[in-house]
């Protein structure tokens, strides 16, 4: 399993890389979209701000979005989840638009939403083997999918319930940080690597083999 860990140029990629490697993935850190979409899957990490990360997306977002729509495996964490949406209150720029909706500022008394929070999970194989999830968050923005059915998990903070996870084909977006959520978080990463491998086996259509 070769996974591309996309580098927007800011923040801590190291621990996420190590968590993926611990789940038996081979990790390539890259800022090259061609390369990122030619492996077995893509990981969008969760560090930095929406604006600079959106600027790191390809100018023509179409091919990237189509690739994900076709089922190329992808895991977006925190900011990486937010990039799956159309746009964000945080800064100008367009997201990937795979999940229709907008990223909103978290209107709460204490922001960032920082620490361990309960996550209610729907039936989804990304949560296999996890009975009860308490995960680590560090976010000031939350995602609002147009279609609430896109959400596969929820958390509540200061009385507001928001999407803790979304799914579209083989793309999962998680608002919390599995790589910082101790054992259950590592289970989620292991599940993603397994699901990505299964998806690639079911449809081994890499861009390389088509070209």
């Amino acid at each position: 399993m070769k996974l591309a860990l996309f580098d927007y140029g800011a923040g801590n990629l190291h621990s996420l890389g190590k968590a993926l490697e611990a789940a038996q993935a081979t990790v390539t850190v890259t800022s090259d979209w061609d390369k990122a979409l030619r492996l077995d899957g893509l990981v969008l990490p969760g560090v930095g701000a929406f604006g600079p990360a959106a600027r790191a997306l390809p100018d023509d977002i179409g091919p990237l979005r189509s690739r994900l729509e076709e089922g190329y495996p992808c895991l977006g964490i925190c900011l990486g989840m937010q990039l799956l949406f159309d746009a964000s209150d945080e800064s100008d720029g367009h997201g990937i638009g795979l999940v229709p909706g907008r990223v909103r500022h978290l209107e709460s008394a204490v922001v960032p939403h920082m620490g361990w929070n309960d996550v209610e999970t729907a039936e989804d194989p990304i949560f296999d083997g996890i009975e009860q999830l308490v995960a680590y968050y560090a976010n000031s923005y939350i995602c609002e999918p147009v279609d609430s059915a896109a959400a596969i998990a929820w958390s509540t903070y200061e009385g507001r319930r928001f999407a803790a996870g979304v799914r579209a084909t083989n793309t999962w977006g998680l608002q919390y940080h599995p790589e910082k959520s101790s054992l259950p978080g590592r289970q989620i990463i292991t599940n993603f690597v397994r699901l990505a491998a299964e998806a690639r086996q079911a449809s081994p259509d890499s861009v390389e083999s088509r070209a």
């Binding site: 190590k18 968590a19 940080h177 959520s181």
Partner: peptide, 10 residues
């Protein structure tokens, strides 16, 4: 660097 390789909390 060495810590981040084995620590999975912030």
């Amino acid at each position: 660097r060495r810590t981040a390789e084995t620590l999975f909390i912030p």
